[in-house]
Design a protein around this nucleic acid. Sequence first.
DNA 1: TTGTAGGCGTTATCAG
DNA 2: CTGATAACGCCTACAA
Lengths: 341, 341
Amino acid sequence: MRKKITKRKITLLDVAKAADVSAITVSRALRHPASVSAKLRERIQHVVDDLGYVPDPAASALASARTNVVGVLIPSITNNVFAGVLRGIYMEAEKAGYGIQLGNTRYSMLEEERLLRVFLSQRPAGLIVTGIDQSSAARTQLLRADCPVVQIMEIGDKPIDMMVGFSHRDGASTATQHLVDCGYTRIAFLGARMDPRTQRRLEGFSQCLKQAGLFDQRLVVTTPKASTVTLGCELLSELLARAPDADAVFCNNDDLALGVLFECQRRQITVPTDMGICGFNDLEMMAVANPAITSVRTFREEMGREAMGSLLASIAGTVVEQPVIDLGYELIKRQSTRSVK
Amino acid sequence: MRKKITKRKITLLDVAKAADVSAITVSRALRHPASVSAKLRERIQHVVDDLGYVPDPAASALASARTNVVGVLIPSITNNVFAGVLRGIYMEAEKAGYGIQLGNTRYSMLEEERLLRVFLSQRPAGLIVTGIDQSSAARTQLLRADCPVVQIMEIGDKPIDMMVGFSHRDGASTATQHLVDCGYTRIAFLGARMDPRTQRRLEGFSQCLKQAGLFDQRLVVTTPKASTVTLGCELLSELLARAPDADAVFCNNDDLALGVLFECQRRQITVPTDMGICGFNDLEMMAVANPAITSVRTFREEMGREAMGSLLASIAGTVVEQPVIDLGYELIKRQSTRSVK
DNA sequence: TTGTAGGCGTTATCAG
DNA sequence: CTGATAACGCCTACAA
């Protein structure tokens, strides 16, 4: 059931006529109030309200070759982690009057490339992309893009433009070292999805354990499946089938960690005595589980805010003094890991 | 750090010249391939690829007064429930080549109104809004809108255009009746946020218990705070302080339910014997908790898909035979509620 | 099936 | 500080 509209749209020209000025003056009064005399400004504003004039963004985009839309590319919309980031992004965008066009790459570089092409054709004011592993074609597109670009979630060398994130490798390494410090010796890694950030967490894990002389490849259990609590249960089962003597797990993320806890409960494995558990991201629920779960806290909402903030500053022409922002992480020790010896 | 682009953009006219046809023919070849002879179509496609022509959506929008963007308004981006819905929406949108502009109303009718104005000014191809409780100003805007509109999450009388959802009242009523059937007699309601859908769940709860002669206002514990697992713990504590004899809780959603379970574990309250727990939405983790939690399953991804599907059909001019789609719900009985007597 | 003319609503440019 | 004029790139008519 579609409705049709008959009355003609109110344009800048209508306002101009009613206010007895030229169209461009109205345009200016609306965009740069300071560049118009107070008297006119007021009169124009009055007419605008009166007529209910609403600017046409398409016309504006065509004439000025720019929009007030920021494109955001994330690999998943169901993943909790990105919800937090998006929240931060929206908060800042809203304040500044920018719209968000969200694209879901589904962890596919090709899809990212495709979306980038689509987004770029819309002349976005800026672009936020996830991670630092764009395909070379995507990277080229971004480097050529006529707008600022922020890479989020991670930091690394060779930023395309700006970056806001933290080192997943270091975060994982810190968490793993904690497990070592607690006295666990058969420490496992449980990983789902195995996207680039998860891979780097695995690197940090491996490196740390190798240094401690505790690394055992059989204790690394991964799957390309998307991570869920249920999958955490399954991965623990797989681990125990392979290595019944495992005494701690570092989980790729908190969903898995919670699943591991549930599975331990079912199998009467005592946490943290017989099994230590550490998650990643520190979702809110970690603090209230029984036992509460140790995790690596990441600053997701802040990441979104900082990313959008940097982007807006750059759009405004400000020279961004700090193109790479490291937000760090924080190990939150709880009851799911033994107290440090 | 912004880059500048010097080379002129490739336009329809460039392609037309290179292919030795008129601009409109190129336009048609791209939009309605069938309306152009095979020969030309091929030649044009070749030149397009060759020159790397990309259509300008702003120009297209201005000339045709329509875009291929669908506006989506949801009350929260961190709420798990909407992630599922969005997923469905994106799946369908992608297939059809439509973009999504997402707006976050933050459970505020005023914000919804504001966003609606912004979105509408962009000439969206369609609109998806959450719930059936728009302000009258918003409703008027939507009724006047020159595009199809789908209301999601709920169903009710007087659809603006189309609706895809289910009855929260009935879902809650079914769940509550289950608790009654299990033999619980001091059944409580725990509710966070108290948005319209939660309110209707509370209605279903109250109605059911009144019929059973078991309703007690003191067993209704609500808060305007956003729902979290932690809040579930707190609400249970509040409930028990008020009514130590409560023997079951119907939770507004699964986050709360999980929190209640955790808190019961801490207080050594045996579930389901001494306390029955029922959630709402049936998030994936409900099935693997200990004990597994009874919940009302809702079909969120399907809701998104159906909504977008109806919208696209309507955009395409198809007469939508079923403007209101009830996706229903399903009570999933698990170990957190006693077996029915 | 293909082409011609004109305009969509706004902004950049250059005068005054 | 204000205004006239010409784009911006494409699409809707209508015509051939």
